[in-house]
Simulated assay, not measured.
Amino acid sequence: MRILALGKWVVSLAAALVGLQGHANEAAWPTKPVRLVVPYSAGSTADMVGRILVDRLGARFKQPFVIDNRPGGGGEVGTQHVARSAPDGYTLLLTTGGPLVISPSLKKDLGYDLVKDFTPIADLAWIPVILVSHPSFPARTLPELIAELRKRPGHYAYASSGVGSYAHIAMEMFKQALGVSVNHVPYRGPSQAESDLVGGQVSLMLTGISTASVFLQNNRLRAYGVSSRERSRFVPDVPTLMEQGVKELVDYEVTSRTVLLAPAGTPKNIVADINAEINRALASPEFQEQLHTKNLLSHASTQPAKVSETLVNERTTWAKVIKAAGIQME
């Protein structure tokens, strides 16, 4: 009996030591700089969000949080790098949704999977796109635009920042909802696409509000609607596509979001600590204003489970659009 009791005591002591070690490990993070991998170049949306965020996180956790730009493959290079990194809280992914929710339907072997390889932390910022045309386009309102496209199928062309970009996929969803035919002209990035739109070489484009607003102010572009459920504070006079009485567009919502994720298996306490600090930031008027100066919007709060659900739903939506459009990477 004494031997049995002694055995139980040893087991209990071992369990207690393991528990203490676990708490010690939890308390130890971070003990060195944390990298936020941005799979795009400096100046991109994710990069801008990251540079606002790192100071806040560094001050809270008493260690530097450093932006590590790893562009390439439309965001896939940096995303793959994080998927293969150790799940220790020292390598995180700060990205827009493209490589997570669009790329899986365009490429067979990405080297990562949204659900299997990542743990979501936060949804930091988002922005809708805006449907614009060259002023010469023979329609001043959204209903007039739709009528013109239906009257002349295949006659007009729209620009995008490249095959598989948000601008491309979002316009294909717009076409599918309305049953219209508009030719696609892909460019290598948004700048040349917007330049040709302003120059009248193409007729239409779904593009970012920040750049479009400059041309709207001097009447070099015409706006038909934004792709969010509510009007944008940056162009408050432009209605949403949903609100204009077009039944085919009552559920048309497209937003580009910037999210923070960690490699799958990252300790839950680290994820929770970062998420809690980000929620404190989102509740801060100063942090919100920093985002607004970059023409970015944010939620009042963010939870990892909701981030995961949102990304999975977007991946499903874009997969259907891409399949219906027959889009393939060259």
Rank of each mutant, 00 (worst) to 15 (best):
I146V: 15
T255M: 12
E286N: 11
Q244F: 14
V312A: 13
A276E: 08
S165A: 14
V11F: 08
V38E: 00
L145I: 11
H81K: 07
V202C: 08
E172T: 07
N219M: 09
Q80T: 05
Q176F: 04
H168C: 12
Q201C: 00
P304A: 12
T119C: 02
V246S: 07
A28N: 02
D47E: 10
R150G: 09
W29M: 00
S228G: 03
M329R: 13
Q21C: 05
L13Y: 05
A325P: 01
A14N: 10
L297M: 14
A177Y: 06
A264R: 14
S210P: 01
V254G: 04
V214Q: 09
T293C: 00
V254D: 05
L93M: 13
V246H: 00
R231Y: 00
G245C: 02
K268L: 03
S195E: 14
R70S: 04
P39G: 09
S308R: 11
V202A: 01
G326E: 06
T79D: 00
E330Y: 14
P64R: 11
R280K: 14
M329Y: 08
T45P: 02
Y156P: 05
L142P: 08
P99M: 02
T317E: 15
R222G: 06
S103C: 01
V259P: 05
E194A: 05
L92E: 12
K116W: 03
S105M: 11
A59D: 04
E230Q: 15
V271Y: 01
Q290C: 07
Y156D: 04
T310D: 11
G50Y: 10
L114F: 04
A14R: 11
D273A: 13
F137G: 03
D196R: 15
P263Q: 07
G72T: 05
I270V: 14
V49M: 09
P186S: 09
A264Y: 07
A14W: 13
G208H: 07
T91F: 09
Q201W: 02
G19C: 09
P190Q: 15
Q288V: 15
K8M: 12
L249A: 11
Q63N: 00
N295I: 10
E248K: 13
D47S: 15
E277N: 07
P236G: 05
I52C: 05
P263A: 08
N69P: 07
V49N: 07
K62V: 08
H134K: 03
T266W: 03
A262C: 01
P190E: 11
A193Y: 06
S161I: 06
K151P: 03
T310M: 13
Q303V: 13
A157H: 12
A223Q: 06
E230T: 12
R222T: 13
T211H: 14
P263K: 02
A86T: 10
L17F: 01
K320I: 09
H299R: 15
